[in-house]
Design a protein around this nucleic acid. Structure first.
Length: 465
RNA sequence: GGUCCCUUCGUCUAUCGGUUAGGACACAUGGUUUUCAUCCAUGAAAGAGGGGUUCGAUUCCCCUAGGGACCGCCA
């Protein structure tokens, strides 16, 4: 077979969710590992439901996670003339036929099948009928003349050999009565036109494959390889759908998940390479293969995503992390003032140690980002009179200092503990609340040093009055 | 209901006939730490059930159970 080519073919009828992204990722990784081409095909033949905003969202999502497609995106609706041409050719060669059943007639059959609890399958009424028997007032649909005898084996690269009786595949419609092509026709033709060698997609398409294979065969085209990957399930064990919460990339981006973390997580969801958990981009490309894909569906686990994210937060450079964080704040929170940038940058070394997400960093650095500290009622109660005198003493000591560093701070704190006959918490907690408005956060030394003398005096003076 | 697929710790998974069934996340406990964390150590935690095949099955086969996907003039 020629140069490897794969494609990701979403329909722009809703936002791309994380399951689709994984499918795209697997296609892309496989292609890159084979030195092939990866294409994006927008399947927008459903005029009613296809929206440009979804197309844009799909492209944006792929870009965000670092998947690049070769060439321009292939817009399926621009190719329907060709699809119709092929349909007519199939018709001419006896692989398809016109079906004059009315909608009502079909609906009636479906209803009856449901009542009798037998599977509905189109009864092939017009398969061998003479054209002359056609009613005048009905625009026909074109159906593919599906095989009735025998069985077909799909040699699936993930699922192994899947055998199905041919008569379970109905004479599916390839051209609607308005003359427009349907999915199975368009997809098969475009895959062939684009010279796609490996079709890697969700296993919800498995039955479609048997239909599309027949089109390939009827047109005497060389069959591509197929690989059907198991779907991602929600925690409840159901197929991930566009309606699910936390399913789009933006849902993850806005809680501060970084693209490489999600990419790494998605890679390991349903695919493995020995015991390896962390994959750089190059390693993913190097090691990815179809053999490593499992056959059972896997569930989404947010705590693993978070922990993967934590790993990347701790392992990328602080400059890089700052840029991400800066961007994150701009997009989803409060833009960081230029004069705060340096303080944040310097504080990243300790901020990142307690963060699983960029949002965590944001929450822990609010005391730097905002000049005004907002207090929680209950926290404020913890600053009693004794605490106030401690803060006052601390304030006085700080005022005497030229600059503040750990060497200066340590003896001050220690002497306060001694003087007030308390422990570290007795000093640290009120100070923390006074300076940040929160009981939690970075170490108190880190807070004090990162704030600097001026800010400390400003904040403490409000408490001490 | 029909067709097809799946089934190892709670979760993601390793194992390609012989392992004390391994790792990661989460969880629990202890240590470090000045809160919360980080970090370190330790622990609990799995082959759905039943039959075969085999000297030996998590691994191969069958049945049962459970779960999932598909069953559109959607893609």
């Amino acid at each position: 077979m020629s140069k490897v080519a794969t494609r990701f073919a979403p329909s722009p009828t809703g936002p791309l969710h994380i399951g689709g992204v994984r499918t795209a990722l697997f296609n892309w990784l496989f292609t890159k590992s084979q030195g092939g081409d990866f294409y994006l095909r927008i399947e927008d033949t459903d005029k009613e439901r296809s929206k440009d905003e979804y197309k844009d969202q799909i492209i944006k999502s792929l870009k965000w996670i670092g998947i690049e497609y070769d060439g321009d995106e292939y817009i399926q609706s621009k190719k329907i003339d060709n699809h119709i041409k092929v349909a007519n050719e199939l018709l001419k060669n006896g692989y398809a036929y016109k079906c004059y059943c009315s909608n009502d007639e079909i609906e009636e059959q479906k209803k009856r099948a449901k009542q009798k609890k037998i599977p509905y399958i189109y009864n092939r009424k017009w398969r061998d009928k003479e054209e002359s028997a056609a009613p005048k007032n009905i625009e026909p649909v074109i159906r593919f003349k599906s095989k009735i005898e025998g069985s077909t084996i799909l040699k699936d690269l993930v699922q192994g050999d899947v055998q199905i009786e041919n008569n379970t595949i109905e004479d599916f419609i390839i051209l609607r009565n308005d003359g427009s092509p349907t999915y199975n026709l368009s997809a098969a033709i475009d895959d062939q036109q684009m010279k796609v060698t490996h079709i890697i997609r969700g296993d919800d398409h498995k039955i479609n494959t048997f239909k599309q294979m027949q089109i390939y065969l009827a047109m005497k085209w060389e069959l591509p390889y197929f690989a059907h990957i198991p779907l991602i399930h929600t925690t409840e064990g159901k197929k991930l759908s566009k309606r699910d919460k936390a399913s789009t990339l933006d849902d993850y981006s806005k809680i501060g998940i970084m693209p490489e973390a999600l990419r790494n997580y998605l890679l390991r969801l349903g695919w493995s390479f020995k015991d390896k958990e962390i994959f750089t981009l190059d390693e993913s490309i190097k090691h990815f293969n179809l053999e490593g894909i499992g056959k059972s569906p896997s569930k989404l686990d947010i705590s693993r995503i978070l922990s993967m994210n934590e790993h990347y937060i701790k392992n990328i450079s602080e400059n890089d992390l700052f840029d991400r964080f800066n961007n994150y704040c701009k997009n989803y929170k409060e833009k960081i003032e230029t004069n705060k940038e340096d303080k944040i940058k310097k504080s990243l070394s300790f901020l990142k140690n307690k963060a699983k997400s960029l949002e965590d960093i944001y929450n822990n650095s609010k005391y730097i980002i905002f000049d005004e500290v907002s207090f929680d009622e209950n926290d404020l109660k913890l600053i009693d009179n004794k605490a106030k005198t401690i803060i006052k003493d601390f304030y006085d000591e700080i005022s005497k200092q030229e600059e503040i560093n750990k060497n200066i701070l340590e003896p001050i704190i220690n002497s306060l503990i001694k003087k007030h006959e308390t422990n570290f918490k007795g000093v640290g907690q009120p100070l923390r609340i006074a300076l940040t408005g929160s009981k939690f956060g970075p170490g108190i030394y880190d807070i004090i040093i990162s704030l600097g003398k001026l800010d400390i005096e400003k904040r403490l003076s409000k408490i001490v009055k």
